[in-house]
């Protein structure tokens, strides 16, 4: 994480940011290399089962998986499952983010509250969300709320902990400046504390988005709540191995999209921040 390395808002004045930052040619080359690597992987996965190194029964070649994928996307039920997964993911992430930010700012801003909750947070945070699966089943059965419970629990801590760090990063000089110009407590939260914490919040949400997806799929897979995970389980039990791989590929693609999206949002909202504007020096 680049955020932990930053010197809290200070440091020497940076040179004017020159538009895009990194030279376009190098970025292009990196993208081509990445695509070439992916292509090689797909090719290997095509060849290995065909030459008989692994059994195509459990490890179908790329072309078979692609075929199954093409079949999936024409199936109405696939899109319903995808929608369910995205709903559980997005709703859970939203709840976790709002709760994490509100509670984080509150806890960090009130020293007594921070002392009071520190050990509790340290105790609850490491509990793996999947350990709550029995509880989720007891409470909600195979309902989408089971997914939500796990997603929210896992991603909430990611956001909360980052917010706690972020609020503590407020520069005393910036805060004194705001106070000396008569900014009220609320105005200082809005104009000093929140912008300072925002890079941390963004990191927290990006991490939470990835974790939320893992937990959404897990809940569907294990509990059987509706979604892509449940569809993977069905494909597996009905021995539709290529379909299973096709669905796994879809979850992987979802993960990539989630991460790309989160990074794009980060770049837009944090254009002023060293971690974004300093890309020249990377």
């Amino acid at each position: 994480m680049t955020l932990t390395e930053r010197t809290s808002g200070g440091g020497p004045p940076a040179a004017p940011a020159s538009g895009d930052g990194r030279p376009g040619r190098r970025r292009g080359a990196t993208a081509w290399l990445g695509l070439a690597g992916l292509g090689t992987l797909l090719a290997v996965m095509e060849i290995v089962p065909r030459v008989g190194l692994v059994s195509p029964k459990y490890f179908p070649p790329t072309s078979r998986v692609a075929q199954a994928l093409a079949g999936e996307v024409t199936d109405q039920a696939f899109w319903v499952a995808l929608g369910d997964t995205l709903k559980g993911w997005a709703l859970g992430l939203l709840i976790a983010t709002v709760a994490g930010v509100v509670l984080g700012v509150l806890i960090a801003a009130v020293p007594v509250l921070r002392e009071y909750t520190a050990s509790t947070i340290e105790f609850l945070r490491p509990i793996p969300s999947v350990a709550l699966i029995p509880l989720a089943v007891l409470l909600f059965g195979t309902d989408i709320r089971s997914t939500l419970l796990l997603v929210v629990y896992a991603s909430f801590w990611q956001v909360l902990v980052q917010v706690l760090y972020g609020v503590q990063d407020v520069d005393p000089v910036a805060d004194e400046t705001a106070r000396s110009y008569g900014l009220s407590a609320l105005a200082r939260v809005r104009y000093v504390l929140w912008p300072t914490a925002l890079p941390y919040v963004m990191t927290g949400v990006r991490l939470a988005a990835a974790v939320a997806l893992v937990l959404a799929i897990t809940a569907e897979l294990v509990i059987g709540a509706p979604g892509l995970g449940a569809r993977i389980a069905v494909a597996q039990t009905s021995n539709a191995v290529p379909d299973m791989y096709a669905l796994v590929t879809v979850t992987g693609l979802l993960g990539v999209l989630v991460n790309l999206g989160a990074r794009a949002v980060e770049r837009r909202t944090l254009a002023w921040h060293q971690s974004v504007r300093g890309e020249v020096a990377v």
């Binding site: 809290s8 808002g9 200070g10 440091g11 020497p12 004045p13 520069d171 000089v173 910036a174 004194e176 400046t177 106070r179 000396s180 110009y181 008569g182 104009y191 000093v192 912008p195 925002l198 002023w272 921040h273």
Partner: peptide
């Protein structure tokens, strides 16, 4: 902090808000 007073700090880089 009185309303009729302004302070200029030494650490301009930290006193100005980068955002």
């Amino acid at each position: 902090p009185p309303p009729g007073m302004a302070v200029v700090f030494q650490e301009y880089g930290r006193s100005l808000f980068p955002w």
